[in-house]
């Protein structure tokens, strides 16, 4: 078992929820399948989905909902 890191493709603002009044795409500790949406990066008023490239378990987010991020910043870790 190893730890896979999920990197942001773009700089911007990271969101864990599709909308402020909705639950997160993935709860902390949830399992993840390839293609699952993990969050959104808002870059210049455009929203880009961050999807899982590998399947894994026990996702742990390292960035808060609504936090400013850089490109290549680690957003989350999961066990693969």
């Amino acid at each position: 078992m190893s730890i896979e890191r999920v990197l942001s493709p773009l700089p911007g603002t990271f969101y864990r929820r599709p909308a402020p009044d909705q639950p997160p795409f993935k709860a902390d500790g949830a399992d993840v399948a390839v293609g699952d949406v993990l969050g959104l990066v808002e870059v210049m008023k455009n929203f880009q989905e961050v999807t899982a490239e590998v399947a894994g378990r026990g996702i742990r987010f390292l960035v808060e909902d609504g936090e400013a991020i850089d490109a290549e910043q680690v957003l989350a870790e999961l066990e693969v």
Partner: peptide, 14 residues
């Protein structure tokens, strides 16, 4: 608002 060396931030419009 551009100048050489300016880093365009991602937080606002394009």
């Amino acid at each position: 608002m551009l100048f050489e060396g300016y880093k365009v931030p991602p937080f606002y419009d394009s």
